[in-house]
């Protein structure tokens, strides 16, 4: 906020009544970005059905500018990890994330994408996609209702609105030192190798006796 030219809110409201819009480059840039978040078209399990419902007429994701589901990661801004990520599928999800162009965002939709959900103690399910890629919004639910997905989208829009274009607290995608791609795990003999990206994933290590 510090190096952003301050516009007096009152003045702004006053002139807007006269048909004049006063804005900053950052504001209009973020407005454009948040109003056209194009998700990537892929679903992994039953959450995908709810995602489809959210995009269809009844819940109408188009109200928030996100109706354009792209089949190519190169054209997508948002990855909705909708469903159970099996260990066999995880390298492909990370690869798709890496192929997306910056700025890119991730919504982990549902219990499975967050933590493995009901399959957490199984041998074949990844215990949360945040082990390999950074997640912006988590939605709980099994599966979450379309309203929850829309809420996540609105939360993401708020996040984009607050992102700075310059200065030390600028958005991650504008910082050349922040990684845009993450290592793809290998399918090992017993598990994915490595089991988590330790630079990214730091679970609380609380020990009980």
């Amino acid at each position: 906020m510090e190096n952003r030219p301050q516009i007096d809110e009152k003045l702004k409201n006053e002139v807007s009544k006269q048909g004049i819009v006063v804005t900053s480059l950052q504001e209009i840039y973020n407005w454009g970005r948040r109003s056209s978040i194009w998700p990537m078209q892929f679903g992994l399990a039953c959450c995908a059905i709810e995602m489809i419902a959210a995009a269809a007429a009844r819940y109408d994701m188009a109200r928030f500018g996100s109706e354009v589901f792209r089949s190519s990661p190169r054209q997508a801004d948002l990855m909705i990890v909708a469903g159970t990520v099996t260990k066999k599928m995880a390298p492909l999800v990370v690869r798709l994330y890496n192929q997306m162009a910056d700025p890119k965002y991730v919504i982990a939709m549902g219990a499975c994408a967050i933590s493995g959900g009901p399959f957490k103690d199984g041998y074949n399910v990844l215990k949360g996609i945040d082990r390999y890629i950074p997640v912006d919004v988590y939605i709980s639910g099994c599966p979450p209702r379309p309203e929850a997905l829309l809420h996540a989208l609105i939360e993401l829009q708020h996040k984009i609105d607050g992102q700075q274009l310059t200065g030390p607290s600028r958005a991650e995608f504008l910082d050349p030192e922040q990684p845009s791609e993450f290592p793809i795990p290998a399918l090992g003999k017993h598990d994915l190798e490595p089991p988590a990206n330790t630079a990214l994933f730091r679970p609380p290590s609380i020990q009980r006796d």
């Binding site: 215990k127 017993h190 598990d191 994915l192 679970p203 609380i206």
Partner: peptide
């Protein structure tokens, strides 16, 4: 079968 050690924090184990 021995599972790999990919344990994650559990609030009430």
């Amino acid at each position: 079968y021995e599972e790999p050690d990919d344990y994650e924090y559990e609030p009430t184990p």
